[in-house]
Amino acid sequence: MGSYVLRRVLQMIPVFFGTTLLIFVMVYSLPGDPVTALFGDKAADPAVVASIKHTYYLDQPIWKQYLHYMGNLFQGDFGTSFTGRPVSDIMADAFPVTIRLALMAFVFEMVLGLALGVLSGLKRGSIADTLVLILTLVVISIPVFVLAYIAQTVFATNLGWVTPTVQDSYDLTQLVLPATVLGSLSLAYVARLTRTSIGENLRADYIRTAVAKGLPRRTIISRHLLRNSLIPVVTFLGTDLGALMGGAIVTEGIFNVQGIGNVLYRAINQKEGPTVVGIVTVLVIVYLVASLLVDLLYAVLDPRIRYA
């Protein structure tokens, strides 16, 4: 077990270098010059451009830039954005917002998704089941930005319960609507996955044994059925936590949430290499850690899986 975790952590090292290099190269090979773009329509003074380029190390060949960036990174310096703010500052502002948003979306999709999935899985063919199937299908087929605009129109414009966009990104109550929209797609997947899994396990031989043992229905469901049925759902939920954090770009944009997604979007547009690489690197690490935790949880849920 310990050696397995160690091996997985060691595996993260090449993944870390690979991602940073890849993102670095991709950002720097984007067409256009970020520095001249800073001047907008105005003509840029070549001397100023050269000086800015020198400050940001942009006048060096790309491999030198990368080494320079990595060198700084290992000293805890994520670099500086074009506005002059350290990237670590920007991330320290934005990540807490996105983490809150993602966690709220995660809790929403997990609790409601599991509940709906268990309900429809146990009562296959019932009205509730059909309703869950139709609703989840609708959610899956509608793109998230459409869903976001519908939610805005209904809850802000028509009902007036919330403001259309988030005014204060640190206010949890304002994040409820964006979080719901963000989590809805995964909720539909969780519900359907749980439903299928429950349906399959209901027909399993060991459930028949549990009935033959004279166990009450409640015990059969909670002790014998749920644990077995949740194994695939846990896998999905774990990897989804990482995806929720990185995948909030559209939702954050529509609801004006000042999180990682918004910052990343702006940074990509302005080709701010250090910001993009910094954020993506952190997201990749979050993703790797989440999937390691899922794999470990897997062994807890299913004793047939052993890591050595």
Binding site: Y206, T209, R304
Partner: peptide
């Protein structure tokens, strides 16, 4: 009480 044919599938795999 009943004894089933295939004990591997008749016992719950995740409980001792």
């Amino acid at each position: 009480a009943m004894i089933f044919q295939d004990a591997l599938s008749a016992l719950n795999p995740v409980l001792s």
